[in-house]
C-alpha cells in the first residue's frame, strides 16, 4: 500500500543523505539523521502540502533534526569531529577521472567555507533548490540566502582558481 508520499520519500533518500553529510560530515551520523528525518516526516505527513515540493520540506525537517542533535551534543559536551572527509565517491579505479579529482578539489574548497555559506551552496548548487526554497529550508530571508551564496561563490572561485 505504498502511496506517492512514501515513494517520493524513498526517492528523496539519496538527496537527504547528501544534505546530511554536508551538515555533519560523518557517514554514521548522516545515516541516523536521515532516519530521524524519515520518522519525523512520516509522523508529520498530514501537515505536508502536496502542492509544494517534497525535497525542501524534507530538508527543513532534516536540518531541524541536525540542530536538535548538535544541541544535545553540546549539552553532553560531546565534540563533533568535523575532520572526516566524505567517503570516496567512486571506488572503481578505471573511473577515477578528472571529474572525480575535480570533485575532491571542489569539496575541499567547500569544506573550507563557513558553515552558513557551505549550506546555501549545497542547497542551491548541489540540490538545485531555488533561492526561495533555500530561504524556506533555512528559515532566513531570501536576501540573506543571496548574500551568503554570492560570498561563498566568490570564495570558492578564488580557491579553485576560477576568475
Amino acid at each position: 500500500m505504498t502511496n506517492s508520499f512514501e515513494r517520493d520519500l524513498i526517492a528523496a533518500l539519496p538527496a537527504l543523505r547528501r544534505y546530511a553529510l554536508s551538515l555533519c560530515r560523518k557517514s554514521d551520523i548522516a545515516d541516523d539523521l536521515v532516519q530521524t528525518c524519515v520518522e519525523r516526516a512520516l509522523a508529520a505527513r498530514v501537515r505536508y502540502d502536496p502542492g509544494e515540493r517534497l525535497d525542501p520540506w524534507l530538508f527543513r525537517i532534516l536540518r531541524n533534526a541536525w540542530l536538535d542533535m548538535t544541541r544535545r551534543m553540546v549539552t553532553r559536551g560531546t565534540e563533533i569531529d568535523v575532520t572526516e572527509t566524505p567517503e570516496a565517491a567512486i571506488q572503481d579505479g578505471a573511473r577515477v577521472t578528472e571529474a572525480v579529482l575535480f570533485l575532491h578539489e571542489t569539496e575541499r574548497a567547500m569544506a573550507a567555507l563557513p558553515d552558513d555559506q557551505r549550506e546555501v551552496l549545497h542547497l542551491v548548487c548541489f540540490e538545485e533548490l531555488s533561492y526561495a526554497e533555500t530561504a524556506e529550508v533555512l528559515g532566513i530571508p531570501k536576501g540573506t540566502v543571496m548574500s551568503r551564496l554570492a560570498r561563498a561563490r566568490i570564495a570558492l572561485a578564488e580557491r579553485l582558481g576560477i576568475n
Partner: peptide, 14 residues
C-alpha cells in the same frame, strides 16, 4: 563557472 563546477561535482555525488 562556480555553478558549473558545483553542478558537475553534484552529478558525481549523485
Amino acid at each position: 563557472r562556480t555553478r558549473e563546477a558545483l553542478v558537475s561535482a553534484a552529478a558525481v555525488r549523485r
